[in-house]
């Protein structure tokens, strides 16, 4: 019981139930607007029957040749609307669009400490492709998992063969 629809500028005036959460960053306008301008179909939100914004996903398509893939930039659900499968629903939509764009895989970064999210992604079929050292700055810096799920175009599942060694952030393509 969700309305899944594209994110619009006006939603920024009332996405506070999602964004006041300390793990959700509020970015400058350009960040949101550039995503809307460049990948509008990849920026979706879910709305409750009463009109409250429950969560949203921001993503993009990038890369060349077999590295052409969908990427999840941000995924956030308001605390009161968690455990309803909304994140899965939003991820599913992003995968669908990436399929349509003939991407080879979908990837995302997640804090290694965020076990709830990591488990959720695993349940959705994502694997830990590699560890990115000190990807998140802070005190101390934190590593990220680069998680991936292959799409139908990657017939031989070459995109999801895990790397055996961690990489530095500057080595990510």
């Amino acid at each position: 019981m969700t309305t899944l629809r594209p994110f619009t500028c006006d939603d920024m005036f009332r996405f506070n139930f999602v964004n006041l959460d300390p793990l959700t960053e509020t970015y400058g306008l350009t960040f949101y607007l550039q995503y809307m301008a460049h990948w509008p179909e990849y920026f979706q939100l879910t709305e409750a029957p009463g009109g409250e914004i429950m969560g949203y996903i921001m993503g993009k398509a990038e890369g060349h040749a077999t590295n052409w893939h969908g990427h999840v930039t941000a995924l956030s659900v308001a605390p009161d609307y968690r455990r309803l499968g909304l994140a899965a629903k939003l991820m599913c939509g992003l995968e669908e669009i990436s399929e349509k764009k003939a991407a080879y895989f979908v990837d995302l970064f997640v804090r290694v400490s965020n076990t709830v999210a990591i488990n959720m992604y695993k349940n959705l079929g994502y694997i830990i492709y590699r560890t990115v050292l000190e990807y998140y700055s802070g005190s101390p810096d934190e590593d990220a998992y680069d998680m991936r799920k292959s799409l139908s175009r990657d017939v031989d599942k070459l995109s999801v063969v895990p790397l055996t060694h961690p990489v530095r952030p500057e080595d990510i393509e």
Partner: peptide, 12 residues
Amino acid sequence: ETSECLISAYKF
């Protein structure tokens, strides 16, 4: 900021 993003919207 918005006008730069408008330009992007045309570009894409």
